[in-house]
Simulated assay, not measured.
Amino acid sequence: MRTSNHLIGVLNFLTFLLSVPILGGGIWLSSRANNTDCLKFLQWPLIIIGVSIMVVSLAGFAGACYRNTFLMRLYLVVMFVVIAVLIGFIIFAYVVTDKGSGRRVMNRAYLEYNLEDYSGWLEERVASDSYWGKIGSCIRDSRVCAKMGRTINGVPETAEMFYVRHLTPIQSGCCKPPAECGYVYQNETVWNLGSGLMGANADCTRWSNDQEQLCYACNSCKAGVLASLKKSWRKVSVINIVVMILLVIVYIVAYAAYRNNKRMDNDEPYGEARMTKSQPSAFHL
Rank of each mutant, 00 (worst) to 15 (best):
I91S: 04
L122S: 03
S195D: 14
N266V: 08
L285H: 11
N201I: 14
S142Q: 03
D129W: 00
V126L: 03
A109Q: 06
M54F: 15
T69A: 12
A159S: 00
F92Y: 15
E112A: 07
I8T: 08
L111D: 14
S52K: 15
Q43P: 07
W233G: 01
A282M: 05
T276W: 15
I241S: 10
L7D: 06
V20R: 10
R108H: 05
V56H: 13
A202H: 12
P177L: 10
V164G: 02
G50I: 15
A256P: 00
I48H: 00
L23A: 07
S220K: 02
S31W: 05
G133I: 12
I8K: 10
D117M: 03
K231G: 02
V95I: 13
L226A: 02
A217H: 05
M198L: 13
N260G: 08
R259L: 10
V51Q: 14
F162E: 04
K134P: 08
S228R: 06
F80A: 07
H6R: 08
S128A: 14
R104G: 05
G173M: 08
Q213T: 10
G133F: 04
S52W: 13
A217Q: 07
G63V: 07
L247P: 00
C65K: 11
I139M: 07
S142V: 04
F61K: 03
I87S: 11
V56C: 14
A202I: 11
A254Q: 01
P156Y: 11
K40Q: 08
G63Q: 13
Y258F: 14
A146N: 13
I139Q: 04
K231H: 02
G50C: 14
L14Y: 09
V190I: 15
K40G: 09
S232K: 10
I245V: 14
L111E: 14
F89P: 01
T3I: 01
V190Q: 15
F80H: 00
V250E: 04
M79E: 12
G60I: 12
A227S: 02
F80M: 03
F162N: 03
S30D: 10
L285D: 08
F162T: 02
A109E: 08
M275R: 10
R32I: 05
S237N: 01
V55L: 15
P156L: 07
P177E: 05
E124T: 00
R67P: 01
K134V: 15
Q211A: 04
L197D: 14
Y183K: 01
M1Y: 05
S208F: 04
D265K: 06
Y75K: 10
N153W: 03
G26W: 01
A223F: 10
I135D: 12
F80N: 00
S52N: 14
K40T: 09
V250K: 01
F162V: 02
L71W: 14
V190M: 12
D98A: 07
C221Y: 10
C138Q: 08
M1C: 10
L46N: 01
W132E: 06
S4D: 04
Q211T: 07
W132F: 05
